[in-house]
Design a protein around this nucleic acid. Structure first.
Lengths: 342, 342
DNA sequence: CTGTTAGCGCGTTCAT
DNA sequence: ATGAACGCGCTAACAG
């Protein structure tokens, strides 16, 4: 008769610790449950035995039992993009500090993935899903809600009931950008934007153009490509190649702005801010690199995350839409003011 | 008498679906278990009811039962650094494609966090932990192993039994870098490195210096600061400010290289490759930006991940150390060859 | 092919 | 303060 080999992976259980410490299994559970009552003597015995045996509470089991996983899903595409990476770094940092575990779901590629991401999150009884890319199908969102899962959309479209929608005030930033270019004395103002921009990026464009119309100035619009450095290079090249070359460009993204600046420098021999003023958005790390020294808008990341965590930890949060001001970061890619303020 | 309010979060269970479909609870389980035998009729009924009720298998429960979580932990610090972000993007992408779920643990800050990260991973019965930053305490590693958890160290120190250790062949790359600078006709060769470099980065330096000694050439070594763009700026400034200004610099990291190039351009009016040859390492996105056009080494990311996944999915993998060649990526930050090859 | 039974590891009653 | 019993939601094993 062959010995039966268990295919299950071995694991130290609370019962093992209890036997080793000579106490009941419940006492083990209690020593690891904050606020439970155990005598110091048994607690000490339990901790010692746990240490020796290498025991760790199985959170799969405890989560199942308590119906609280402590897991938060982070749904994002293009994770290696500077601003996105910074956001994820901050978020994961803060989630951990709040005692949560982050499950990262990469949705690069086909859009259908956002759906799969949420389904996976539901399967793990994730407490919340923070979505940085794409918007889920509303019906799917209902499934999330009915499973007690919270939904946060950062920098995403409006009209999504039941969730927290949060991001910078993109329109206001667009207006500020226009004013700054005017105040710098720019005569021919342009806008460089991706043709595949997200909703929040388009908002920046709208704010910029609305302010321009209000001020009665024309804007050269170059909208093409993706939201990337390479697109910035081409947008910049197209704009600077014109006979009526612009002298002030608002780029809806720092990545685009870096491309525009490089196009100016490498392809046209133009320098910022002397020959050209450029404003970006995001305040990515490269914005403060000496080769760019980019005037831009810093996303209110800290406040976004503050609000996000607060909302996620309240019992029955209600639908909410929050716009936070983006901070204008002055560096040296915009000509010093030549026009006095009104 | 007040009605008792359940504090547990509501959840659609297999039993609910079973009742709704008029079948047994096990049939529900079977329809969602690949390779289980259910008649098409009942499967259809189950799927329909599941759809209606919004049922999703609770993976906390199934993982507990089957002792297989399907979760892989990604342990990393400085997630927003270009190369690290790219690595995480790729890894999470591939893990998902392999049907795994990635749990991201950010260990930026104090070093103790790596320990906490692994303890957390153990709690969730993670199938493997892929460590991109820091090295765990060996005794802790044993706890991992005894809980059936695999350990992968990417770009980390050697002598770590029981794990897969994988990364580029840093020494070889260092040697290649030196040869390239010599072949470019550089007369005064320098090395720029962080004072807080990881083991793998120091290996690059060692390879470079060993090759220099072999070739009988002196190397100016500037080692200071962190592994960052800012450090590169200062390292570059220090080197280029010397009377015996170098004309060829190997930077152990692209980030440092970008800093060096900017120092040369912005602070000394020097251009690559005409006045100065620069070589980096990592092939980050910025390396191909037009302002840098950096000659560098591409990490063999794909192969690393291939091996990583393969190793993690084998039943009883044995200790292994793998060095993969880094690919030299020629761009335009190094003077064209002026010295014929030997 | 289907249903019944048992148990994954844990936390929370309810007793003592 | 401690122990016994129960159930979280699920799947594997065993009958029929």
């Amino acid at each position: 008769m062959s010995e039966k080999v268990s295919s299950r992976k071995q694991q130290v259980r609370a019962e093992d610790v209890a036997r080793h410490a000579g106490v009941s299994r419940v006492s083990v559970s209690r020593t690891f449950t904050p606020g439970a009552s155990v005598s110091d003597a048994t607690r000490a015995k339990v901790l010692k035995s746990a240490e020796i045996l290498g025991y760790r509470v199985n959170r799969l089991a405890s989560s199942l039992n308590r119906s609280e996983s402590g897991i938060v899903a982070l749904v994002a595409a293009e994770i290696d993009t500077p601003h996105r990476a910074a956001m994820i770094a901050e978020l994961s940092e803060r989630l951990q500090a709040a005692g949560k575990v982050t499950m990262l779901i990469n949705t690069s590629g086909y859009e259908e993935r956002v759906k799969d991401a949420l389904l996976q999150a539901i399967s793990f009884r994730t407490e919340a899903a923070i979505i940085l890319s794409g918007a889920p199908d509303p019906s799917l969102a209902d499934t999330c809600f009915s499973n007690g899962m919270k939904l946060v959309l950062i920098n995403r479209e409006e009209d999504f009931p039941g969730s927290l929608q949060i991001g910078p005030d993109n329109r206001a930033a667009g207006k500020t950008a226009l004013k700054a270019l005017l105040r710098a004395g720019c005569k021919r103002i342009a806008l460089a934007n991706s043709a595949n921009a997200t909703w929040s990026i388009v908002e920046r464009q709208k704010g910029f153009l609305a302010a321009a119309e209000e001020a009665g100035v024309d804007v050269l619009c170059e909208v093409d490509g993706f939201t990337s450095y390479q697109a910035g290079l081409e947008l910049g090249t197209a704009l600077l190649d014109r006979e009526d070359r612009p002298d002030g460009i608002f780029c809806t993204t720092d990545l685009i702005a870096c491309g525009v600046i490089d196009a100016a420098r490498q392809r046209f021999g133009l320098r910022t801010p002397d020959d050209l003023s450029v404003i970006g958005f995001d305040n990515i790390q490269q914005a403060e690199w000496e080769g760019y020294d980019l005037t831009t808008f810093a996303q209110p990341t800290d406040q976004i995350i503050d609000k996000c965590l607060e909302w996620c930890t309240t019992e029955q949060p209600s639908s909410e839409t929050v716009k936070l001001p983006a901070k204008f970061v002055w560096r040296n890619s915009v000509q010093k003011a030549r026009v006095p303020m009104k």
